Every structure is written in C-alpha cells, then in structure tokens.
Simulated scan of single mutants.
Amino acid sequence: MTTIRAFTLRDTESVIALWQATGLTRSWNNPHLDIQRKMTVQPELFLVAVDGHDIIGSVMAGYDGHRGWLYYLASDPQRRGQGIGRALVEAAEEALLEMGCPKVQLMVRPGNDEALGFYDTLGYERFSTTTTGKRLIAD
C-alpha cells in the first residue's frame, strides 16, 4: 500500500537513487546539497511516496508568496502507471493550497514529452516563456 509522507533524512540515499534512476540528476547539481537546502526552507513541502519501507516517489514543492513550484517529481520506473506521480502532485498541491498558494508551476526540460503529457493529464497549461538563471553559489 502506498502512502505519502514528509521526507526524513533517513530517506536521503533512497531518494537520490530514485532521482538517478529517473534521470533527474545533473552533473552540475549536487543532490545531497539540494536536499540539505530544502530541509532549511519549507521542509514540510518535500514529500515521498512509500510502499512498506521502499521509497517509490518524491516531489519537492516551494511557495514564494506569489506562486508555488514543483521540483524533483519522480516515481519508480518499474511502477509507472500506478498513480504515484499523480498522488504526489495532488498532495503537493493540497499543501500549497493550505498555505494560500493561488497557482503552481514547474519546469520541464526540452524533449521530455512523456513528462509534458503527464502534466497535460493533470490539467497543467503549457506557457511560452523563457526561463533564465544565474548560479550564485557553486555546488
């Protein structure tokens, strides 16, 4: 039976392994540092899906007072189609809504049509925008 709960530090290695298995990690990001940072800012918005003792999904959310954001949504590739991703998104949306968040957004890397299709089924709208960024701290 799958349950969704807040991330705890003992989940770290399992979550990172999940992120690696789903292609979410990048050479320029340190997932341990990403987790460490998240645990200092709205840690209640870092959720995991668990089956028994196994981590089978994750999502990080954040709310800046204007918009909510979703990051690191992942579900076990062997369990795709079982509603894990949907349940995680819904749980994150509920938590954001409880904080007064009026809108949630996320970013999808170019070419990830499977993810775009998934978010389409959840009612997410595609925007034509350009995202820019600047690294302030080297990982």
Rank of each mutant, 00 (worst) to 15 (best):
F46D: 05
F7V: 00
D64S: 01
I84R: 07
V48G: 06
G52H: 02
P43Y: 02
P102W: 14
T12L: 08
M99N: 08
T22K: 10
C101T: 06
A95Y: 04
A92N: 01
L24F: 03
M39W: 06
A95D: 03
A95T: 00
L70M: 13
D76S: 04
D120E: 14
W69E: 13
E98N: 11
V50W: 00
W19M: 06
T25F: 09
M39Q: 13
S58L: 10
E93Q: 10
G83N: 12
L97S: 10
Q82Y: 09
E44F: 03
A74Q: 10
M60I: 08
L116A: 12
T2Y: 12
I16V: 15
G62D: 09
M1A: 13
L73P: 05
L136H: 01
Q82N: 12
Q20C: 04
S75W: 00
V48I: 09
H66Y: 15
L24R: 00
R26V: 07
R126A: 13
D120R: 14
E98T: 10
P77H: 04
H66L: 15
S27F: 04
M60C: 07
Y72P: 06
M1K: 13
G117L: 01
K134G: 07
T22N: 08
R135V: 15
R80I: 04
D34Q: 08
T131K: 08
H66I: 15
E114I: 11
N29Q: 14
Y72K: 13
G85R: 08
T121S: 15
L18G: 11
G52P: 02
Y119F: 15
E98V: 11
V89P: 01
M99C: 07
M39I: 08
Y71C: 09
A61N: 04
I137P: 05
L70Y: 08
I4K: 09
R67N: 14
T132W: 14
A92S: 08
Q42C: 02
T129D: 06
Y124W: 10
I56Y: 05
E98Q: 13
N112K: 13
Q82H: 12
T132V: 14
G123H: 05
G133D: 11
K38H: 15
A61W: 01
D139C: 06
G68Y: 03
L18N: 11
T2G: 03
L136M: 10
R80S: 05
H32E: 08
P43I: 02
G133H: 10
Q42F: 00
G57Y: 07
G68F: 06
